[in-house]
Simulated assay, not measured.
Amino acid sequence: MISISANLNIMIKAVEKASKSIIRDFGEVEKLQVSKKGPKDFVTKTDKHVEKILIEELSKIKKNYSFVTEESGIIKNKDKDNTWIIDPIDGTTNFLHGIPHFAISIGLKSKGEMISGLIFDPIKDEMFFAEKDKGAFLNNQRLRVSKKSALDECLFSSNHEGVKFSSLNMRCSGSAALDLAYVASGRLDGYFQNKINLWDVAAGSLMVKEAGGIVNNLDQYDTYNIDIKASSAAINDKMLENLKNF
């Protein structure tokens, strides 16, 4: 059995609670697809509701930790050394269109470094998590990045509009958090995107590192404007060479 920290335990309980309303609301979205008005307002409500549950649950035990969240922004509490970084639904557009590919993402930053990350895909029931120096896991199975070394055998993801890299096999999944979790689990070989928000990549960047991959330094960017490049160690140099003009 994997030993997990008290903080990660709190994160798991919070996402399990919040995911119940996501699953329920996703069922409703299916019905709203065919209505004239569409589900947009409804999904915004879900986003805010899920974030509210996560903040409440995380604050129950860690009353003073601060927050950086998608909906509420920066919440400074007494403890500024420890910050929860939350994306209530990463992949909102997929959710909105009834596409079952989205996740709840929570990262914990302590004294300037990421120490815990959790990405939960409630529809596929896949719980990805990582802790600094303890490895990365999917539903209790240890994760390792891909070992492929030939670029033409690799698969990459970027949600960058209009980006065409003729030499790389590309996907655009609509969820940065899951893309990073998939790099950590070897399903994808690399992920890159410019001008992305911290809450989209906080948990996933730790996960990739803990699974043996490489992520560029994110601390040089501000919260709302991060350029991320993440991949397995085997192809990192080749990927960066391909992305020189990106």
Rank of each mutant, 00 (worst) to 15 (best):
M114I: 12
P122Y: 06
G98F: 05
F120T: 05
K124G: 01
L108C: 05
D121V: 00
L108R: 05
F120M: 02
P100M: 02
I99F: 10
F129T: 00
F137T: 06
M114W: 02
K134G: 14
A130I: 04
F129G: 01
S110A: 13
F128P: 11
I106E: 07
K124E: 02
D133G: 02
F120W: 05
P100L: 00
F128D: 08
H101N: 03
D121P: 04
K134A: 15
A103S: 14
G117Y: 01
G98E: 09
H101M: 07
L118E: 07
K134E: 15
L118W: 07
G135L: 07
L108I: 08
A103F: 08
E126K: 08
A136M: 10
I99K: 15
D125K: 12
K132S: 10
K132Q: 10
N140L: 00
E131K: 11
F129Y: 15
H101E: 06
G135H: 09
G135V: 10
E131I: 06
K111T: 14
E113H: 11
M114A: 08
G117Q: 02
F129W: 12
L108Q: 09
K134T: 14
P122I: 02
L96E: 12
F137S: 01
L96C: 08
F128Q: 05
I106R: 07
D121H: 04
A103H: 11
K111I: 12
G98A: 03
N139K: 02
F95R: 15
E113T: 08
D121Y: 01
I104T: 14
G112Y: 13
K109M: 14
I123Q: 13
N140D: 11
F137H: 03
L138Y: 03
K109F: 11
F102C: 12
G135E: 09
K124D: 01
E126Q: 04
D125S: 06
M127S: 03
K134C: 15
F102T: 14
P100S: 09
H101Q: 04
G107C: 06
K109P: 10
F137C: 02
H97C: 04
F102P: 14
A136F: 10
L138N: 06
A103R: 07
K134M: 15
S105W: 00
I104V: 11
F102M: 11
I119W: 10
A136T: 08
G135F: 05
N139Y: 01
H101V: 09
I119G: 09
G112S: 13
F95P: 15
I119P: 11
K111A: 14
M114V: 08
L108K: 12
I123Y: 11
G112Q: 15
K132N: 10
N139V: 00
N140S: 11
G98H: 08
